[in-house]
Design a protein around this nucleic acid. Structure first.
Lengths: 210, 210, 210, 210
DNA sequence: ACGTAAGCGAGACGGTACGTCGCGTCTTACC
DNA sequence: GGTAAGACGCGACGTACCGTCTCGCTTACGT
C-alpha cells in the first residue's frame, strides 16, 4: 500500500470540504454551488481547496470513490449459495440497503431533483455489476438452458438496476419509511417477478405459485 | 387560443437555437455548453438569444414543453377498452415509442451520460402520469378488491416508469436496435410481469375478458 | 433657397425631440440621456428619430445651429459707431444678453454641471468672433499705435470670452437675478477695465476717472 | 494616517490605467474611450480594472483627487505678507502655473475640446477657493470700507477663475509658449486690472505698503 | 376631395460595451 | 509543508443602448 494516511489537518480539511459540498448541494443544488461557497462553508481558504482537488467535480468523484469502495466491500462478499425467493430478501440486497442508509445524505441529494446527472449513471453501473453475477449464478443454477426469453437478456438486466434505483429513490425521498429488510424484500420481489421471470429464472422456493 | 403563431423570422431563430443546443449537448455535455456556443452555432447574435429565452435552461424547458405536448397528444387519447396482455404491446406503449423515435436526438442526449439532471425526473413524471391511469383501469377491471399486495402500490408504480425509462435508454443508446412495436412489447411484458403482478393484476383474467 | 419648409408632421416631430433632449439633459445630464429616453419623452418611435438625426449629438448640433443663427443675427448688425464706456453697456452686449435670456433653458443646461464639454467651446468661439471685430474697431479708433501691451493681445482677447461666459453662467444659474441691461453693463465694465486696458484701449468717455 | 501604501503591483496597475486613460482621452476624447480601451492599452485585464475602480469616471475622479492634493499643497502655504502688484506675479500664481506645467498632459486634455464637462467646473471650484482668501486679504488691507463696487462682488470673483482658466487654456494649447513666471504675471495683471479694480482694490495702495 | 407618397409605429436583429461572477494560478507571509 | 490573504488573467454571464431593416398603417399635401 503506497498511500500513507494523510496528516490530521489534511484529513480535517478534506472532510470539511466534503461535508460542505453535500450540505450545499442539498440546499441549492449541485450546479448552483461554487467553490467559493464550499470553502466559505468549510471555513477553508479557497486556494487550499485547489491544493487538494482539481475542482468541484473532482471533490465529488473522490468522495464517491470512497463510498463505492464501501459499497463493494459490503455487497460483493462470497455469498456461497443463493436461492431465489419471494419470501426473503436476497442477502446482498439487505447489505445494499444498509449501505444506502448509512450514506443516506449523499444518495438522497444525488438522486434527488438537485442531483448530478452523471452520478446516477455511475451508481447504476455499480448496481449493474453487482447484480450481474448474481443473475449469472441464478441462471446457471437452472438445470436446462432457456431457449428463448420473453425479453432480450440485456434489456431485462438493464431493467434491474432501474428498479433498484427506483426503490432507492422511493426509500430515500420518504426518509426511510420502512425497514431496510423490508425495502430489500420488495426489491427482491419486483426483480424476481419481472426481469428474472422474463429471463426464465425459475422461482423454486415459491410455494403457492405454479 | 390567444397565442398567435410567431413571425417566420422568430420561428426560424428559435429553431436554430434549439437545434444548436441539442447538437452541442450531444457533443460536449449540457453543462459545458455556453450561451455563446449556442448562438455561434445557431448563427444568431447572443443578445437575440436573450430576447427569446431567459437562459440556456429556459431554452431547454420551452423546447421540452413542446415535446411533451406532442407526447401527451399521442398517448393520452381515449383508448376506450384495454386488455393486459403478454402477447401484444399495449397500444399507448406503441404510441409512446413512436414518439420517442421521432424525438430520438433529444431523448438520447438527455438520458445519456451528458444529460441534464432534472430532465430525467421530468420525463419520469410524465410517464408516471401516462401509466397511472392505465394502471387504475387495469386494477378496477379486477372483480374483487385486492386485500394485500406483494409490494406497496406506490413503490410498484414508481418502478414502472423506471422500467420504461430503462427501456428507452437501451433503445436509444443502441440507436433503435429493434422495431418500435418490439420494444413496446418487451416493455409491456416487463411491466405486466413485475409491477402489475406485484400489485395483484392477474394476467389470466386478461385472456378471459372480451 | 433650396430648402423647402418641411411638412407639418416633420416639424412637430423635430420640435418634440429637441424639447425632450433639453428637458432630459436638465434632469439627468446629457450623457445619461439615451435616444430611447428622448423618443419616449417625445412620444416618437425610436426609428423615427434616426430618420431625422444621425444620433443624439446630431440633434444637439442642429438645434444649436438655429440658436447661433439667431445669436449672430442679433449681435452682428451694423453698429456704425461705438464708444467704450464704463457707464453704459455696449449695445451688442445688451443684444447678447437678450438672446441668452430667450434661450435660457438651453444655455443654462449646457453651461451647467450637466453640460456638454464641446458646447462651451463652441459658444466661446462665437463670442470670440463677435468681440474680435469690436476690439479691432476700438483699437483702430485710437490715434497712436500702442507699442507694447501689458499682456499679449491674443491672451487678453481670450480672456474676454472667458469673462463673458462667466457672466452668462452667473446670470443663468441665479435665474436672471438682475436685468439684462445690468448684466450687460457689468460685463462691459469688466472687459473694459481688464483686457481693454491691458491692451491700451483708452476709455475716453469716462468722466471721473484718470 | 490609517491608509497604508498599497502593494507595488497595485500601484503599478493603477498607474498604467491612469496613463492609459489620459492618453486615450487625448487621442479620441473621453467619451469615446471605453473601459476595454483603457485596459487593453494598460495591458491589464478588464476585470482587474473593476477591482480598483467603479468605472471610467471613478478612475478619473481618483486621479484628479491626487492632482488637486498636489495643487493645494503647493498654493495654499502660509504666504505671510502679500502685495498686489502689476510688476511681479503673485507668488501663489507662480506656484499654480508650475503645478499646471507638471500635470500639463492632464490639464491640456481636460480643458481641450475632448475634455470632460464636469472637470472644468471642478477645476474652477478649486481655483475659486484658492483665490478667494487672497482677495479677502487684499480687500481687508484697504483702510476704508468700499461702499459700492462697480460690479457685484461675487460676479467679479467668478470672473477671476474664468480668467485663470482662460490663461491656463492658452498656455496649455500653445504648449507653454512662455515661461511660467510670465504667464503668472499676465494673469496677475488681468486680475488686478479687471476684477480687483472693479471691486475697488486700489493698485496705488500697494506701492506704499511695507 | 381625394389618391398617393411621405412619414410613422412596431418590433426583430446584429453589434459593442457594460459591470459582475466564478474559475484557477500565483505570490507573499505566517506558523 | 499546510494555510491565509488577496491580486490577477480569463471566460461567460445577463443587460443596455446603438443603428439598421422590414412590414404595414395613416396622414397631410398637391393636383
Amino acid at each position: 500500500m503506497s498511500k500513507t494516511k494523510p496528516e490530521l489537518r489534511v484529513r480535517r480539511t478534506r472532510k470539511h470540504l466534503w461535508d460542505a459540498l453535500i450540505r450545499l448541494t442539498t440546499e441549492k443544488g449541485y450546479h448552483a454551488v461554487s467553490v467559493k461557497d464550499i470553502t466559505e462553508r468549510a471555513m477553508v481558504n479557497r486556494v487550499t481547496f485547489y491544493r487538494h482537488y482539481e475542482d468541484k467535480h473532482d471533490l465529488l468523484m473522490r468522495g464517491m470513490d470512497e463510498i463505492f469502495d464501501d459499497l463493494v466491500a459490503r455487497t460483493r462478499p462470497p455469498l456461497s449459495s443463493y436461492r431465489v425467493s419471494l419470501d426473503r430478501p436476497a442477502p446482498n440486497a439487505s447489505a445494499f440497503f444498509q449501505h444506502v442508509r448509512e450514506y443516506g445524505e449523499f444518495y438522497r441529494v444525488m438522486l434527488g431533483k438537485n442531483g448530478v446527472s452523471g452520478v446516477e449513471a455511475r451508481i447504476r453501473k455499480h448496481i449493474d455489476e453487482l447484480f450481474h453475477e448474481r443473475l449469472e449464478l441464478a441462471r446457471q443454477s437452472q438445470s436446462g438452458i432457456v431457449a428463448e426469453t420473453m425479453v432480450p437478456p440485456d434489456l431485462a438486466i438493464s431493467s434491474i438496476s432501474a428498479i433498484v434505483l427506483s426503490m432507492m429513490r422511493w426509500w430515500l425521498e420518504g426518509s426511510f419509511p420502512v425497514d431496510g429488510e423490508e425495502i430489500a424484500l420488495y426489491t427482491t420481489r419486483l426483480i424476481v417477478l419481472g426481469p428474472y421471470r422474463a429471463l426464465g429464472v425459475e422461482i423454486r422456493t415459491i410455494t403457492g405459485e405454479g
